[in-house]
Design a protein around this nucleic acid. Structure first.
Length: 465
DNA sequence: ATGTCC
């Protein structure tokens, strides 16, 4: 492959045989060295898919994914292009929510353990976590169809929560294309965290880079915030499994040299069915995060005279129909963001964020800082209005366990982070050293002028699946 | 990521 560095934060993967567009990787020189050839190969494979426009993009937190790289962005002509489950990921609408509690660190400090233990109990975690909100199957169907509208009607979300959720937490779909098996897996998991890199973290605002925007986002210096990272649990995973199988068995799916990189025309029967099911799973994930938010709010209201507010809840694994300018023409596209965050800038963002741009929530690795960013004006042209989603792995889970078993808990203690993991194992898998440095990733997306830092938070305590 | 392999 032929890769050229064209400026401090932009690398071009030149078009080769079969590529419809070039690859573009936004990264610093230092971070680029940690990108493996396999994930760059995935950027190239995606560039070969039918109907892709402009470029196959990657963010500085890129790493190997199923078919498509994690940290990848690819947009396809909505009429003549494809949709691919691998371009969304198994965890459909995996995403992040941030709650600002209005409580200052000094007031919170004496209650760190007490409050964190309550959060651990109220937001079930771990691989199976089947202790979610009890709902009927007709409720589940309504959740798939209407997302947060269901939560609002059941007093589990406020109007403000909906306004502060990507797409209002409600993406239109029929709710009819999610298998019974997927529904069965999901029905007991609403409001649960899951496992792996999913977490709930209590944080302290340690730095404000942009006073005006921070104020509009409702975040103050030294305030306690709570960040939640979770997705569509077993339901989304089963939807992905179901449709990848159906695509494999279909005679019109588009197969490539990589069996994981399978896609179908977006306008085909199977393409439309997957998109519909993906939207159902996305609504499920919005409700899953909302129930966690609701319970976080209840815990803080119990311990403090507090009125916690949702800053934002967003998806970083999703495909969306959007209008973008391509070669001076307005085009309807299906934008796949896999481990990448929508970050429309001021003037282009949906209400109530027209003046600021959508908030972007960037969790660091366990025990390290997290950021709130906001999109910069040129990013629509550069990445379909997209920025990074986190740190990005550098060590596999197995490698991390081998290297850091038994020492992560001490490390967290030294950093003064109180940890409540569901199992010790997950703590080792998620050793901070197995991820890229989040500060470097944020520097790179700022350097590439995709997004700028608004606020930095440091961890106080963490609940891990 | 995931009832970590129907």
């Amino acid at each position: 492959m032929n890769v050229r560095r064209i400026d401090d934060y932009t690398y071009i993967v030149d078009k080769e045989e079969g590529m419809n567009v070039p690859g573009i990787v936004y990264s610093s020189e230092e971070l680029f060295k940690s990108i493996d050839d396999g994930s760059l190969r995935q950027v190239i494979n995606v560039a070969k898919l039918p109907g892709i426009v402009k470029a196959s993009y990657a963010m500085p937190d890129i790493h190997l994914g199923y078919g498509f790289p994690i940290g990848g962005v690819a947009a396809f002509d909505a009429n003549s292009g494809i949709i691919s489950p691998g371009g969304v990921g198994y965890d459909i609408n995996c995403g992040v929510a941030l709650v600002s509690t209005g409580i200052k660190f000094e007031e919170f400090k004496p209650k760190v353990r007490e409050v964190t233990d309550d959060l651990f109990n109220e937001v079930p975690s771990g691989l199976t976590s089947r202790k979610g909100l009890k709902v009927s199957s007709s409720d589940l169907n309504e959740i798939l169809r209407s997302g947060l509208k269901w939560a609002y009607e059941h007093d589990l979300a406020t109007r403000e929560d909906m306004d502060h959720t990507e797409d209002g937490g409600s993406i239109e779909n029929t709710g009819n294309n999610v298998s019974k098996a997927a529904q069965q897996r999901g029905i007991s998991q609403i409001g649960t965290l899951g496992a792996g890199n999913h977490f709930l973290e209590v944080q302290r605002v340690s730095q404000i880079f942009d006073n005006e925007t921070a104020k509009k986002f409702g975040i103050e210096m030294d305030e306690v915030t709570v960040m939640v990272h979770t997705g569509s649990r077993g339901l989304g995973h089963q939807v992905a499994t179901d449709y990848i199988r159906m695509l494999r068995e279909s005679d019109y799916a588009i197969k490539t040299s990589d069996p994981e990189l399978i896609s179908v025309p977006a306008e085909s029967v199977l393409g439309e069915k997957y998109l519909d099911a993906m939207r159902s799973a996305a609504n499920f994930a919005f409700v899953n995060r909302q129930i966690a938010i609701h319970r976080i709010r209840e815990v803080f209201e119990k311990h403090f005279d507090a009125r916690p507010r949702l800053v934002y809840s967003l998806a970083h694994n999703i495909a969306k129909e959007e209008l973008h300018m391509v070669d001076g023409e307005r085009m309807k596209l299906i934008v796949h963001r896999k481990g990448a965050t929508r970050a429309f800038p001021a003037g282009k963002a949906s209400p109530p964020f027209e003046d600021t741009g959508h908030p972007v929530l960037i969790p660091g690795s366990m025990g390290t800082a997290s950021y709130v960013l906001v999109g910069l004006p040129d990013n629509l042209e550069k990445s379909f209005g997209t920025t990074c989603h986190g740190s990005g792995r550098v060590l596999s889970r197995n490698q991390a366990v081998k290297k850091y078993a038994g020492i992560v808990e001490k490390e967290l203690e030294q950093r003064n982070v109180y940890a409540r993991p569901a199992t010790k194992h997950v703590l080792y898998e998620e050793a901070p050293e197995s991820y890229k440095n989040v500060d470097d990733v944020v520097d790179a997306v700022y350097g590439a002028r995709l997004a700028k830092p608004v606020v930095k938070m440091i961890p106080i305590s963490v609940v891990k699946g």
